[in-house]
C-alpha cells in the first residue's frame, strides 16, 4: 500500500512536473472561463480555427528566435482579419470561410517547419509538450494566462450582457465593439497559452468542453463559470500528473478526461441529462395520451 502511495507521489518530487501541473491548471482554468462564452455563442469553430492558425506564427518565431507568443499572436490576428475579410466580401458560408483560412495558415506553418526542420519541431507545436517546456516559454504562458484572468474578472459581466443582448448592452452604455475585441484578443492569447499544454489540434477541447459540460449541469451563468473553471483546472492538473506515468501525451490525457466528464454529465445531469430527459418525456407522453383519451376537445368538421 505504502509502496503504491510512494509510487503515486513520485511526480511531485520533480520540479518539472510541478511546473507542468501548475501551468496546465492555470491554462485549463482560463480557457474554461472563455469556453462558457464561446460555447453559448456557437463559436466553437473559432477556437479550433485560432488553434490551427497560429501555427505558422509559432514556427516563424522559433525560426527567427523571437518569443513564440509574439509570433502566435501576430498569426492569430492575421487569421481573424483574413476570415472577416473573406466573409464580408464573398458569398461563402461562415464555416467554409473559417475552414479555408485556418487550413491555409496551418499548411503554411507546416511548410515552414518542413523547410527548417532543425529549429522547429512541428510535432511539439501540434501536440504540445508541457513536460519539456522551456522556462522562458512557461513564463510567457503564465503571464498570458494570469493577465487574461485578471481582465476577465473585471469584465465577465459586461461580456455576458453583450453576448446575451447586444442592443441592450449598447443601450446601457457598454462599448460592445471594444468588449468583443477584447474577448477575441483574450481568446487568441489563451489559444497561444493552450498551444503549449495540449497543442494546436486539441486547443478546441479546452475552449469548448468545460463550458458545454457545465451548461448541462446548471441554468445560471455564474454557476456555469464556476463549474467550467473547476472542470478545466482539475482535469488539466490531473492530466499533467497522469502523463508522468504515460511518458507524455499530456494534451491527449487532459482532453480525454474532459470528454469523459462531458459524457458523464450528458447521461447523468439531474435536469438536462439523457436519463432525466427520458423520464420527463415518458411522463409527458403518458399524460398526453391519457388526456387525449379522456377529453374530446377536437371537433372535426
Amino acid at each position: 500500500m505504502s509502496a503504491l502511495l510512494a509510487e503515486l507521489a513520485v511526480p511531485f518530487t520533480y520540479d518539472y512536473m510541478w511546473k507542468a501541473m501548475w501551468v496546465s491548471a492555470l491554462v485549463g482554468a482560463v480557457c474554461a472561463f472563455l469556453s462558457c462564452y464561446l460555447m453559448l455563442k456557437g463559436w466553437s469553430l473559432m477556437g479550433d480555427a485560432l488553434g490551427h492558425s497560429i501555427v505558422p506564427g509559432v514556427a516563424g518565431a522559433y525560426i527567427i528566435g523571437a518569443p513564440f507568443a509574439a509570433g502566435a499572436f501576430f498569426a492569430g490576428i492575421l487569421a481573424a482579419l483574413g476570415m472577416a475579410f473573406v466573409k464580408q466580401h464573398s458569398r461563402l458560408r461562415e464555416d467554409a470561410t473559417i475552414g479555408l483560412v485556418f487550413t491555409t495558415l496551418f499548411a503554411l506553418g507546416l511548410l515552414m517547419a518542413s523547410l527548417h526542420p532543425t529549429s522547429v519541431s512541428i510535432q511539439t507545436i501540434v501536440l504540445g509538450n508541457i513536460l519539456a517546456i522551456a522556462d522562458e516559454d512557461a513564463l510567457q504562458v503564465v503571464i498570458i494566462a494570469a493577465a487574461s484572468f485578471v481582465v476577465l474578472a473585471f469584465i465577465w459581466k459586461d461580456l455576458m450582457v453583450t453576448f446575451f443582448d447586444e442592443t441592450y448592452a449598447r443601450g446601457i452604455g457598454l462599448k460592445t465593439r471594444t468588449l468583443k475585441l477584447v474577448f477575441f484578443t483574450l481568446l487568441s492569447a489563451c489559444t497561444v497559452a493552450a498551444l503549449q499544454t495540449v497543442g494546436a489540434c486539441l486547443v478546441i477541447a479546452l475552449v469548448v468542453t468545460p463550458g458545454a459540460t457545465a451548461y448541462l449541469l446548471t441554468d445560471r451563468f455564474n454557476r456555469l463559470l464556476v463549474i467550467a473553471v473547476a472542470i478545466g483546472t482539475v482535469t488539466s492538473f490531473v492530466g499533467a500528473y497522469l502523463s508522468f506515468f504515460l511518458n507524455g501525451a499530456t494534451g491527449g490525457i487532459i482532453v480525454t478526461l474532459q470528454t469523459l466528464i462531458f459524457l458523464a454529465a450528458f447521461y447523468l445531469a439531474p435536469k438536462h441529462g439523457v436519463l432525466a430527459a427520458r423520464r420527463k418525456a415518458r411522463v409527458a407522453r403518458d399524460r398526453a395520451l391519457a388526456e387525449s383519451k379522456s377529453a374530446s376537445v377536437a371537433e372535426a368538421a
Partner: peptide, 8 residues
C-alpha cells in the same frame, strides 16, 4: 423533450 405541440 416532453413538449406536446399538438393534442387531439
Amino acid at each position: 423533450n416532453g413538449f406536446t405541440a399538438v393534442r387531439d
